[in-house]
């Protein structure tokens, strides 16, 4: 349990792709944040299965994975699809702590979700270390153009002000969703992948929660948390 940092790249076993080239698979923790009903789970569905399904409100947090192949590296996205409901807010830091990428999702047809996203941003800024997390502002439900309440300019403006990346997507039609994931993959790899210890190597059988444990005070009692 004493191991603090992930294995040093190079020390780890290399895997080969179909062409026989050795390709490293690195773990990327990505968290989806945003108000209730903005489409975080449907986006996650798109990322993972490229399908659209009406979802029920997420209970707690859903964990999904998807491997993205870049030219010289594979990134194994560990996607934490958090519940937008307020009752889970007290536990959400659990999910975004140590994330390499965070997607702040809002619904372009509901202004309050845009405001909510900014609240999440503030929350996130309290915790993240400059340069270690790439943050995207994602205006979802782009298919609801006729009900739009948040303009592209507004979204872009906020993103520019706060140094975020910006994109509008539609989980329903799939528009821009895979582009988003590819972009995130590139950015994460550029920002953190190159750094020593920025991304950990993914093993066939991950050795538990090593690099997440060290960041937190180990609270073994469940009594100490509550909304």
């Amino acid at each position: 349990m004493g191991e603090n940092l992930p294995r040093v790249p190079g020390g780890a076993r290399l895997r080969c792709d179909t062409l026989g080239r050795p390709v490293q698979t690195l773990r990327v923790k990505m968290v989806l944040l945003g108000g209730s009903g903005v489409g975080k789970s449907t986006l996650a569905q798109r990322f993972v299965k490229d399908e659209f399904r009406m979802t029920t409100p997420t209970v707690g947090c859903a964990y999904l994975t998807r491997v993205v192949h870049l030219s010289n590296v594979s990134l194994r996205f560990e996607i934490w699809d958090t519940a937008g409901q307020e009752k889970y807010h007290s536990v959400t830091p659990l999910y975004y702590r140590g994330a390499h990428a965070a997607l702040l999702v809002y619904d372009i047809s509901k202004r309050e979700t845009f405001i909510r996203a900014q609240v999440w941003l503030k929350e996130l800024e309290k915790h993240y270390i400059e340069g270690s997390t790439v943050v995207w502002l994602v205006g979802n439900k782009g298919d609801l153009e006729e009900d739009r309440q948040v303009s592209v300019q507004e979204g872009q403006g906020l993103a520019n002000d706060r140094g975020l990346f910006f994109i509008e997507t539609s989980a329903l039609s799939g528009d821009q969703v895979s582009n988003l994931l590819i972009d995130v993959a590139h950015r994460v790899y550029e920002c953190t992948g190159a750094q020593q210890g920025g991304l950990s190597e993914w093993q066939e059988a991950p050795l538990g929660d090593l690099h997440h444990r060290d960041t937190s005070s180990l609270m073994t009692s469940c009594c100490k948390v509550g909304p």
Binding site: S41, R53, G60, C61, A62, L64, D81, Y88
Partner: peptide, 10 residues
């Protein structure tokens, strides 16, 4: 939504 998500932690 575990059936669609894979793994839930709550």
């Amino acid at each position: 939504s575990a059936f669609q998500a894979g793994e839930i932690w709550t």
